[in-house]
Design a protein around this nucleic acid. Structure first.
Lengths: 343, 343
DNA sequence: ATTAGCACTCAATACATTAGAGTGCTAACA
DNA sequence: TGTTAGCACTCTAATGTATTGAGTGCTAAT
């Protein structure tokens, strides 16, 4: 069902005011501050309707109204005007990128997380590309000492990983080259999760002479790649203290404890959806964030989704601003990644 | 000046009780709970003396006493009995190490940080070895694609670093080998901070033919190594909520904000001192931690100090337990590092 | 030197009062 | 018939007041 024009205007005003002040909004405030041209009594009637329809709530009988999750949802879908980043914010993003050496994707997204939290004043989270779903672009073994070799892997998603492998006895450079070539031949183009027993045994089959050395390398390499899939970078974790909803020590504690549980955050941010998603309060699947809102977006290279970048904060979030910034930031990021990695 | 025996006993009892309960301790409590064999009135007199001497404080006239920074200091230096880790704690440490793949130092100390915060229930901080003060053990350039090479550096402190370098035009494998050899010859054994203009120009002098390619590699390499010296890993940041002194939202906020300022923490933890140090409240140099205590210890390889591992929490800290655990943990860590890296 | 006893202090708690913001309803009005 | 002025009502937040109790400091007796 669709709301009448006047109800929409009033609902929008209530939400905007509440996002701004964090105080329940009364009918007089609306009438005066937003120049509706109608009396507070009329607004009161409309607000009573809006409450009945579930868009507004009353903390107690004699208080003003605050938006419900449903209210925010309607606001996000139908009422708000997306806010373009201010020139100040655009400047801030530029500066950040200018100061960052753009080499590896991990560094880039760590920086992005910083920018995002600093200009939104919420907590930002950035999910790095999945190692498992990346494919091998190149892999090189190098000998660092008699007992150690280091494997370096570069993926199509721009991730560079190294891992140190102890070997039982010294290895000739010819052998290393041979293994190197074989690994590249067999693994290049495969995603990490595709590297299974059959691939591994096919390598071992073709390199019968090197069994002992292969057995010390491959399991370590395999485990190292698979043990550590995505990482999540947070920033602005103490930003929540800006918002009165977290003046309650219990609330703050819950929020911050969530941030310490990376697995949970990974779950929350890994959900597969493309483009920008907004989850408001109880819409969230996980209990821990049922009184938070999460806005997140995918960043990509070409049309392959690499990871997520998002913001987490109170349901009373400045959605118009956050979504605007997030759009701008992912566009910038996608552009950089494309030029950087797609060659 | 030295305190009389009875005063010492009373002071110890007050501090132990306060560390346990976080409530100001009254004379009756001491008399009853700690079976002094003297009356509360006598204890009152002694406590008044201890206050005059600066070891105890009174939040207000009709409250019990709480230890002052000076009181804690005296306790740490003279009164406390160091607490050996419980068998449960030892077990926890063992488990952690068994589950961790011990390869690179960064992984090890990240894990250590987790163990430390989990068994102390304070916030732990671990300072990684300084890159600048590490010396190059081996350096290898590898070609990943026509436009990218990756440099991998291993230091005597066990740090493995890689950095990606864009090159203007393809490079032959012979050239790469030549540069590789030269870099190793010139840099091995030098600390990173010793790599200055004179070293670099000596390399360029001896490799006149490769000037163009060297110019694209060396600055990037140099910057990458020097830009990022130590890192600090935190864990258990929300542990402070266990302690009533942080029930005040302002206090919690200050504490957590400090933790977001890595530079400050780096300063605090980098101070050069060996072995175990305890800084109590106002003894700390930095304002931000003047109502906290910090206990930290060095970890080493042989007798070279690599970094720090420590705990930060309220001045009402269980010093006896924390110091005991920290001793045990650094011993374990030093042992592992020695076997792992010193070959 | 120690201790019992007592008057005193002060934070914390509970309770009562008030002020004010905001509502819902009714009746009058355009 | 939709809008509005007006008013009684509700409920929180703020403020003031009394009470309680833990703990002290001092004094006088042991």
């Amino acid at each position: 069902m669709s709301l009448g024009d006047r109800k929409r205007t009033i609902l929008r005003a209530v939400i905007i005011d509440y996002i701004d002040t964090a105080e329940p909004v009364g009918s007089r405030t609306i009438a005066k501050k937003y120049e509706m041209g109608i009396s507070s009594a009329t607004i009161r009637n409309e607000m009573a309707d809006l409450e009945e329809l579930g868009y507004l709530e009353q903390p107690h009988t004699s208080a003003g109204r605050i938006p419900s999750d449903k209210g925010y949802r309607f606001f996000v879908n139908e009422l708000m005007e997306l806010q373009r980043p201010s020139s100040y914010e655009i400047e801030a993003v530029r500066n950040f990128f200018d100061r960052t050496t753009i080499d590896e994707i991990d560094n880039i997204i760590k920086q992005i997380s910083k920018v995002l939290s600093s200009i939104t004043q919420y907590t930002s989270a950035v999910l790095s590309p999945s190692v498992k779903k990346s494919s091998v672009k190149s892999i090189q073994l190098i000998q660092m000492s008699l007992t150690d070799i280091i494997a370096v892997i570069v993926t199509d998603t721009g991730i560079v990983r190294h891992c140190k492998i102890k070997i039982p006895k010294p290895i000739s450079s010819n052998t290393l080259t041979a293994i190197n070539n074989m690994l590249n031949e067999k693994l290049t183009g495969l995603t990490i999760e595709d590297i299974d027993l059959s691939v591994i045994s096919s390598i071992q089959l073709e390199m019968k002479g090197y069994n002992e050395i292969l057995n010390s390398i491959i399991p370590v390499l395999n485990e190292s790649l698979k043990s550590f899939d995505c990482d999540i970078f947070l920033d602005g974790t103490t930003n929540i203290f800006h918002y009165p909803e977290y003046n309650d020590i219990e609330k703050a504690k819950n929020f911050l404890s969530l941030l310490e549980h990376k697995e949970k955050l990974l779950d929350i941010f890994s959900e597969d959806d493309s483009n920008i998603t907004v989850s408001i309060g109880k819409e969230n699947i996980y209990d821990e964030v049922k009184d938070c809102s999460i806005v997140k977006a995918s960043y990509k290279i070409g049309d392959k989704t690499l990871g997520k970048i998002g913001v987490i904060g109170p349901t009373r979030m400045n959605y118009a601003k956050v979504i605007g910034i997030l759009k701008y930031l992912t566009d910038t990021l996608n552009y950089i990644l494309k030029n950087q990695l797609d060659e």
